[in-house]
Design a protein around this nucleic acid. Structure first.
Length: 465
RNA sequence: GGGGCCAUGGCCAAGUGGUAAGGCAUGGGACUGCAACUCCCCGAUCGUCGGUUCAAAUCCGGCUGGCCCCUCCA
């Protein structure tokens, strides 16, 4: 397998730390609002990475954080905590907000067939761990206390700019003035590890610490949660491209200064979903959630939409392309439904051949669109039905598009009998050329989401997708 | 102002030096009472200009256009 590594800016062969067990950390949501479909694209891509690794025979432990404190609206200590803003907006407690949106998030990823991470850790459950690491960094003179807050001194970590590929001067020019004007900082890009001296009063969540009563910075949570649950070394760390700087940059600095060792080998970043105006963003106010999509489309359609493209390519979302994807999905499922299970025996050579093609596509930096082409190749090929169905089932372990989900099996016997009678009546009507009655019966069934098809072998039916 | 990415037929998209996969849509045809489903057929020289090469969509440079990051957002 080879994959693009942000750390080296190259596509590299993947070499696991341990032979079969892979440790993967993926940044989770800040649960102050619904996830928008752009957020969800990232999790879909991460899911593909995980499932590809599993398909290749690795065992993957995936850890994800849930940010319920510390994520400020600004990187200086002037912004509001995102959670505090939500509290004000919805007039609920922080816990209620966090619980509600966490549940909604887990619902969303479930609907998209994203495998639930092995470990899901809340930021507020690991305060002790943050304090341990921060104390250590202070002791090592890498962190310092200033103006009531604890900051990380970025000049103490020589590789600070490695991940982002920038340098301090480039960053300074574009930096926001309130970041630079944070007088507590020794250097412009130093970042907060623990805040006690907040300039805003709306912060509800506070903990006692050796540095005073306060709350943690955003970046420290991921470092500590990863260390706690996955150990000192991890294979993958994923997130969207905007996390490269400063979030992941800061994570590396903290973690490696704490352990004194290299932390993560492969940094994988997922590109944005844009709408026609550009980036989809919560701070713009309006944003598309899965709830909205669901009104018109099965969430799996959105997953397919994402898989048609590449995770490192920006994707533009429009309702037109969703409409198109719906058609693609319908046709795909129809074709698969037309493959009838029979007595044919599995052809192992053919299985290996297509399976290798499928794997090769995914092993090549997760080329999902090509993997879908292999799926089409199988469907079109003249191999026997059972071999086809077997391969489709295998592929769907990674694609997770419910390719073999036979919804028509949901039709109970009672309904089945009813449909059969209707079909017979319709065929009788057709024979005497009473097409009005025939069409009426067809419409009746369609109202119940039953589609009638006249084929060479007689009339068949299926449930509408 | 700095850094970076992208540009392939109507749409999505594969392709990383040897003469353009695939899917959807459109059009044509078969099937059908009609429709749907299914099957068959049809389309591009790869934003633009120039360079390297026997050979470039693929490498290099200029230009144009779009987007992203540098500031909370995935």
């Amino acid at each position: 397998m080879q994959i693009y590594n942000t750390l080296t800016k190259k596509i590299e062969p993947f070499i696991p730390i341990n032979k079969n067990e892979i440790k993967m950390y993926t940044c989770g949501p800040t649960v102050y609002n619904y996830a928008h479909i752009g957020n969800l694209r990232t999790y879909i891509s991460e899911d593909i990475l995980q499932k590809t690794l599993e398909y290749l025979g690795y065992q993957v432990t995936r850890c994800m954080n849930i940010t319920d404190v510390g994520h400020l609206t600004s990187d200086a200590d002037t912004g509001d905590d995102k959670m505090a803003v939500a509290v004000k907006r919805e007039k609920k407690s922080v816990m209620e907000i966090a619980d509600y949106y966490t549940k909604e998030f887990l619902n969303d990823i479930n609907k998209l067939n994203i495998k639930k991470p092995t470990i899901i850790a809340k930021a507020t459950d690991n305060i002790k761990e943050y304090i341990t690491v921060i104390e250590d960094l202070i002791k090592k003179d890498i962190a310092y206390i200033s103006n009531g807050n604890v900051y990380f001194d970025t000049t103490k970590y020589s590789k600070y700019y490695e991940l982002s590929g920038r340098n301090q001067n480039d960053l300074l020019i574009g930096a926001r003035t309130d970041v630079l004007n944070d007088l507590g900082k020794k250097n412009p890009f130093d970042f907060g590890l623990w805040f006690t001296n907040s300039k805003f009063a709306s912060q509800d969540l506070k903990w006692d610490s050796p540095f005073g009563v306060g709350y943690p910075g955003w970046h420290i949570e991921c470092s500590c949660i990863a260390l706690k649950y996955l150990g000192k070394h991890i294979d993958f760390h994923c997130g969207a491209v905007d996390a490269i700087f400063p979030h992941h940059t800061n994570e590396i600095a903290q973690t490696e200064c704490y352990t004194g060792e290299k932390w993560c080998n492969y940094w994988v970043h997922m590109e944005f979903l844009n709408d026609q105006q550009g980036k989809m963003s919560k701070s713009k106010g309006e944003f598309l959630t899965l709830k909205v999509i669901e009104k018109t489309y099965n969430p799996i359609i959105y997953r397919l939409f994402c898989l048609q493209s590449h995770y490192r390519k920006q994707l533009i979302f429009t309702m037109e392309t969703m409409e198109n994807t719906q058609k693609i999905y319908n046709k795909l499922i129809n074709k698969i439904r037309n493959i009838i299970k029979d007595n044919s025996t599995l052809d192992q050579n053919i299985i290996n051949n297509y399976n290798n093609q499928f794997k090769q596509a995914l092993e090549d930096d997760l080329n999902t669109s090509y993997a879908l082409t292999v799926l089409y190749d199988v469907i079109k090929s003249d191999i026997n039905s059972n071999t086809k169905l077997y391969l489709i089932g295998q592929f769907d372990q990674v694609l997770s598009l419910n390719l073999l989900n036979e919804e028509k099996n949901n039709i109970n016997e009672q309904l089945e009998d009813y449909i059969k009678i209707k079909i017979i009546k319709r065929n009788e009507a057709k024979q005497v050329k009473n097409y009005q009655l025939a069409d009426q019966i067809r419409d009746e069934l369609l109202e119940q989401n039953i589609i009638i098809k006249d084929t060479k072998d007689g009339t068949v039916y299926e449930r509408r997708l």
